[in-house]
Structure formats: C-alpha cells, structure tokens
C-alpha cells in the first residue's frame, strides 16, 4: 500500500532543479507528482515518478544524493471539507504528518494526496480502518 518517493538534496542556487529535470528527461522518466521543501540554503525535492528503479539509477549515476522513502497516497473526495475529513481522523488517532502534497492527476472523482507519516504502517491501518482509499504504488506510478 506504500508508494516509493525519491527525495533529492539540492542546493538553493540557480540551475539545481534544471539539472534534475535534465537527467530525468534524458532517461524518459515521467514525473507524476513533486514537492519542493526549501530553506535559505538548501532544498529537498520530492518526486513520484513512473519508473522508480530507472530514475534512481540515473540520478545516482549523475551524482545526486537521494533517498527512497515510503509515502502514502490517499484518495480524497474532491469537495470542500474532503481533506479535513482525513486530517481529523489522523489527528484523533495521534498520527503525525511529516509533510504532504497534492498529486497532479485525479483518480476518478477523487483528488490524491501524498502523505509522509511516521510511523507509516500505523497510519495506513488507521486510514483503512476509517474507510479511506489508499492507493498502491503500481497504480500511482501509472496514473
């Protein structure tokens, strides 16, 4: 039920992002979702791609520091209060969201939100228990 996310360390300077997209583009990797966390001197680029092993390989070959992390893709009803419903459940159950970002594509009538939880497995159990749809990796990569 988990999705593999690739995080890349980037310095906060012109051209950093462009180097990443260049490498991925040359390897014909499609970016499915992304989020950039930034501080004054560095950033962390988080990516969901269609082909994780290849993306990982080409990025490493090009000298990037990266990490593969398990994140969770959850379907969120695309209407006011949709996200709030999920967060209320998580909050009640004492699950901490490290970070989250929205997926570009939709799954039918629903939006998709990527969550990074700690611990991940407990969070998935809680979500399933409350009837939310957690999307498996394969489905997310090919959306």
């Amino acid at each position: 039920m988990k999705v593999k996310q690739i995080s890349i360390f980037l310095e906060n300077k012109p051209g950093s992002l462009e180097k990443v997209t260049g490498v991925l583009s040359a390897a014909a990797i499609n970016i499915r979702a992304l989020a950039l966390a930034d501080t004054s001197d560095f950033g962390i680029l988080r990516l969901i791609v269609n082909d994780v092993p290849t993306a990982r390989k080409v990025l490493q070959e090009n000298g990037f520091t990266l990490k593969c992390t398990d994140v969770v893709a959850v379907e969120v009803p695309d209407r006011p209060g949709g996200l709030h419903g999920i967060l209320s459940v998580l909050s009640r159950e004492g699950i901490n969201v490290e970070y989250m970002y929205a997926f570009i594509e939709r799954s039918g009538e629903n939006a998709i939100i990527i969550f990074r939880f700690n611990p991940t497995d407990t969070a998935i159990d809680v979500l399933l228990k409350h009837g939310f749809t957690v999307l498996p990796g394969e489905q997310v990569y090919s959306l």
């Binding site: 995080s7 360390f9 501080t39 520091t65 992390t69």
Partner: peptide, 15 residues
C-alpha cells in the same frame, strides 16, 4: 557535502 547516509527527506533532520 551531503552523503546518502546524512541525507533525510525531512528538512528538520538536515537542519
């Protein structure tokens, strides 16, 4: 230089 052992996908860890 940030090595893979040092790197974390969370900003607070790096900070």
């Amino acid at each position: 230089e940030v090595s893979e052992t040092l790197f974390s996908d969370e900003v607070k860890e790096l900070q």
